[in-house]
Amino acid sequence: MTTEAAPQTSTPEDVARPEALTPEVRLKLYETMVLSRTYEEAILREYHADKGPGFDIGKGLVPGEMHLSAGQEPVAAGVCAHLSTDDAVTATHRPHHFAVAHGVDLKKMTAEIFGRETGLGKGRGGHMHLFDPDTHFSCSGIIAEGYPPALGQAFAFKRRGTTDIAVAVTGEGAANQGAFHESLNLAASWKLPVVFVVEDNEWGISVPRSASTAIASNADRAAAYGIPGERVENDVEAVYDAAARAVRRARAGEGPSLLEVHTLRMWGHFEGDAQGYRPELADVNKHDPIPAYEQRLRDEGLLDDDKVDEVKRLCSSAVEDAVTFAKGSAIPDPSTATHYVFA
């Protein structure tokens, strides 16, 4: 097929982009996770600042459902470290960590979460519907249904002769949806450059994985489609290594891979979820992946107090700038509520 002139894309040399866990890469993984957590803590603060008296989900500057990703940062940081903004990412209803790690503009994203005219979707989308053409980032609020559009992005990249890839993310609950299996089969059959990521945080809202899923590892499902499957723990370097293999295979034109990460949902399914169904709740913070990684880098001499302070200060500054930008942005004019239905 002939195609139109290819837009700005990655080149074959990019296939060989560094994958070794150099000190620079390890610090970058740490910084990405800290930025993501700093972001979620700020959204958490702003979200709950004006929901009272009591808790009214529709009240406040950030109304509606809010699904925060604290604890799942290793997945996004480890995967997106291999991507450029020419690569696509389709995330889930819990999308912020992937958006942050993929380089979505924090100001535009935050303005969207605040429902402002300057937001990614001019306030029409909200936190589950973030679309950023600059970084080929999108997300869907429907379980597993972010996988199929990623196939088409990968298809377009392949047709244009690029080595760009699409990363499609779901949770472990989505692995029991038809869209998951249809997508794996089609991508494998057509050798599409996709990396399928499953974030297994063990909970489909309140239903534990053990009660929903017949097998211990969703990575085993890859065998059904003749593609590699790998399951790793919530360790950003383990994710980084496994993602390197999947991304390399996709860029080389060898087809998709499935990567499951056994991760951790530190907070509720959504804000306001008391998590009474969760017996291990008291222990959750002990498994926080970020302090553990920070300690590891300290032990190996890559981080010290000054560097940690600097990272946290820069992350906080970027996040607070974004929040300030959002709060200072215009609220959409109600008379424009019917705009943008059609192009």
């Binding site: 139109e4 837009p7 696509a88 389709t90 080929h136 999108s138 249904e145 996988y147 199929p148 559009p149 990623a150 196939l151 088409g152 992005q153 990968a154 298809f155 377009a156 990249f157 047709r159 699409a166 038809g178 869209a179 249809e182 997508s183 089969n185 089609l186 059959s189």
Partner: peptide, 23 residues
């Protein structure tokens, strides 16, 4: 020709359209 997987191939069309093709 596609597999009998309407969800997957309609989604494929959507993603390709988002990237500028006209499926």
């Amino acid at each position: 020709d596609t597999p009998i997987s309407e969800t997957a191939f309609i989604g494929l069309g959507i993603g390709a359209a988002v990237e500028g093709m006209r499926p």
